[in-house]
Design a protein around this nucleic acid. Structure first.
Lengths: 204, 204, 204, 204
DNA sequence: TATGAATGAGTCTTCATTCAT
DNA sequence: AATGAATGAAGACTCATTCAT
């Protein structure tokens, strides 16, 4: 069985595989894994249903490859760490702009995020992908902060907690879960909390 | 059609309906909504498949009733707010014990939480349930804090953020997502952050 | 099995049976035999589902009893043969008024007629009922005409054909099957045809 | 969803679709729409149940395609209008032969006719099909008669009434509804009536 | 008599996957 | 390498009928 999965070598074949991944991932993001079927994937990719199973073990494999290809740009785009040296005074501003970018990015693909997050909770492989990405993101931020003289002490933990804070906040804002909330003030509170978290880490 | 949904009047029938809800909810928690079928629910409940559809509109209705019956004890058990008056000095201790209880509770039903959280992201009705519960929890905590002389200013926002912080933390610890993390220290950081968040709210 | 069907003796029980027949027949007429179920019948009759099967062998038996009770008034109401002696000159007028009454009657229960006619074609028992009724109707008309000096020769055949003609015409008019048709003229043609059919039968 | 209906391109596939239509239509004709199921259709067609739903939206679609394919030959075969010019003297003979052909044709598929007629009364789509066919038949006959110098005046109405007359007659004869009837004489009466109906239309 | 709870076989339909070409 | 036809098990839901009380 497994041996029938072909890794395409020819350019056209590679493109075809690519198209399937793109189509599958898009469809999953738009409608959810359980609400689409392989025939639809094949159709959107412009290939036959048969060929799908020559490149992929099963439907699930398409999701995973899609996640690996496109998950990054979809879920972790904010981590375009600023090039220029970090100035402590700008800490709030930097975080605020991160939040804004994060929100902006998620707004364009609300359903995508929700559908994929659903999988995170029910599909171990998808979960593993996200755990890894979370960790990588933490590492990138850590490296950046250390370049800017942040103390190493529990930096990963602090970053991880802070990213979670931002994530929660953005989710709340995007899905507007509770309209009794004052979102502007929430942003301030979160920024402030993050500042406090890193207070001891900033070397003078 | 809709009128065929019966609200059982006889005692034994009520128990039977209860059993279906319990069986359905358990099964969903153990295996996930999409991995179980109505026949299994009926079997576990010790009833015929037919009876299921006399008490419930469809499979989904079983989930929702289960959530309404058992969701609270499963997801919001920590909110047994302490009876005795709040002492500022005990703030960290209170939060810590909340976290511990939270973790304890979730550990016994790991999959349950994950399967249900998966639904939160893909099922609007389930999402609505959680949004409501989140808000109610916030309200309970708010009332408690205000009884203990916390200032009203953005209290909801602060509570909500803090609960999110705790939630993230516990999730991280339970699922042990990144074993490079120092969980004890994370707990400390979170507690500290929460303290800071409420700093301005505590009246002297 | 059969022995369990009870013929109610008590007044209240008889009323109950009556209610079931009425409810069942109405429901069938409104929605069609295959689109209703016994639970609905019981509900509309205000009885329990169980009792239905103490008075009737099965769902079909309800239809048949309903047909026997109410079929006549629904399908053969026009055969209120005029009391006063027949005057040859009034032949067209009599037929015309028959047609009008027929149409009037059918208009109020379009679906009823269609649903029952559907059964006539697929259910032998229902078909038998209608054949019998057709024949009875023919007989009534025959008797009437013979009282009025119509010759006996092939009278049944002529009546039967004429009634069919009227039936077709009314159906066409009620369901407005082809709006290119001139219905007033059709009525005239039919009346005229019937006159011709009976021409030889009228004794001078 | 809808897009999953495939129009087969390969020769063998087309044949298979054809087989399903044939099997479905036959089965419906033999046993009635409500008394057969898709599994039976698939079995008789020698295919799997799955393929049925790749060619047809649902069970009902099979009926409709069957009707479109085979309805004509089954219900309107008599309308093989004679090629040779019409001679007024032969009017009775022509009608008589039409009747005989009609009866002959219907005798071979008694149940088919009944089952389909049942649908006409309960299924709007089937009804629409028959209304259309009725009209077309009328048009064909009209054209034929006009070629033979029949006057246009209310010709459609007359034809329609006459066809109804024939239809009733044949139905009576085939199903032998009332064995007290003298069928030979009925035929004569009908022919005579039709002659009378067209009397004014025949130009001298 | 009467209730309404309970049964379970049966129905349509879907879809991941395989196969013949 | 590719097609798209074909499979068939599985799933949600219905309903005439029976049963326990």
């Amino acid at each position: 069985m497994d041996s029938t999965i072909r890794e395409p070598k020819q350019k056209r074949a590679i493109e075809k595989k690519e198209k399937i991944i793109r189509a599958g991932f898009d469809l999953i993001c738009e409608n959810g894994y359980y609400n689409i079927n392989t025939a639809e994937i094949a159709k959107r990719a412009g290939v036959s249903t048969g060929i799908v199973y020559q490149y992929f073990k099963d439907k699930h494999a398409i999701l995973m490859e899609g996640l690996n290809r496109y998950g990054d740009t979809l879920f972790y785009p904010m981590i375009k760490v600023p090039e220029d040296p970090f100035d402590k005074k700008h800490f709030p501003r930097i975080i605020k702009s991160m939040i804004q970018e994060y929100i902006q990015n998620h707004k364009v693909s609300k359903t995508a995020h929700e559908e994929i997050m659903a999988m995170v909770h029910s599909d171990p492989e998808v979960a593993a992908y996200f755990y890894k990405r979370e960790w990588e993101t933490t590492a990138i931020v850590k490296e950046y902060l250390m370049k800017n003289q942040f103390s190493d002490l529990y930096l990963s933990e602090k970053i991880h907690i802070s990213l979670g804070l931002i994530d929660n906040l953005c989710h709340e804002i995007i899905y507007h879960k509770h309209d009794e909330m004052d979102y502007d003030r929430m942003i301030e509170i979160v920024i402030c909390a993050i500042e406090k978290i890193f207070q001891g880490s900033i070397k003078k």
